[in-house]
Design a protein around this nucleic acid. Sequence first.
DNA 1: ACGCCCGCCTGTAAGC
DNA 2: TGCTTACAGGCGGGCG
Length: 277
Amino acid sequence: MPELPEVETIRRDLDREFAGKKVKAVEITGARSVRRSTHDELTTRVVGRTFKTVKRRGKYLVIVLDSGEWLVFHLRMSGQLLKATPKTPKPKHTHVVIDFTQGGQLRFVDPRTFGEAFVVDPARLAEEAPGLDELGWDPLEDSLPWVDFARLVLARRQQLKTLLTEQRIVAGLGNIYSDEVLHVAGLRYDRLSNTLTMQEVRRLFRAIIEVVHEAVTARGSSLADEQYVDLYGKAGGYQDHHQVYAREGKACPRCRATIERTKWGGRSTFYCPACQV
DNA sequence: ACGCCCGCCTGTAAGC
DNA sequence: TGCTTACAGGCGGGCG
């Protein structure tokens, strides 16, 4: 499930491979992957344009075109962006194919079709892409004084996992990394944010930054289902560093207690009942 | 206005 | 062995 570290890994790959390249053709075959405009409209706004740079905000990938417009991808659950050559056979569920004038191809593959691509004029972001416009603190991109983070956390009365996965507060964390962050911070998923001591807020703040940076260094997490791969189809390595996620019944690496799994908001949550308080 | 929960999807795996 | 069911979860929208 691509979260910030996985999306950042793909961003770096995309920027290295496609910045400066000019789009020759766009082929959209998936019915749902382009849904904010007609397929023709997206094609018209992208063909002939050059990829200037590739940015990321939270879990959104933003390709800045030389027209000033943004070609945006959100991978949701199962989306993949893959570099290929036109002659390699297209995997099942390939919905969008972008060809470049110098050769080379970018493919959007997405079995569950939750993911999407759209073009937006950044001047009209608030009206046309509020989810992208209203993102909160990006722990990799934005420097935030920890006292500002403390103000944010203490002003709310939310379970910590809700707060961490709320994209308008912290941009980029999902189910896996929120569990990992909370374990590093030694805090339970259901602790109410306004009950934290300043020391605990500081631990949480540092844990977010630490986990995100280490996961980016490891090129993200690939689970058993191999859903996430980078632009070259290669798996990440951070799953080997997971302390709690998908480790129920195993020993907590910090205190050796048994890691538990529980249902929380319809999602699996993994935590150590002993050293997370 | 806010918080919770469903629906969207397919592939995989567990269970009978 | 083969079919059914549960599960994976980001996010928007609808409902209470």
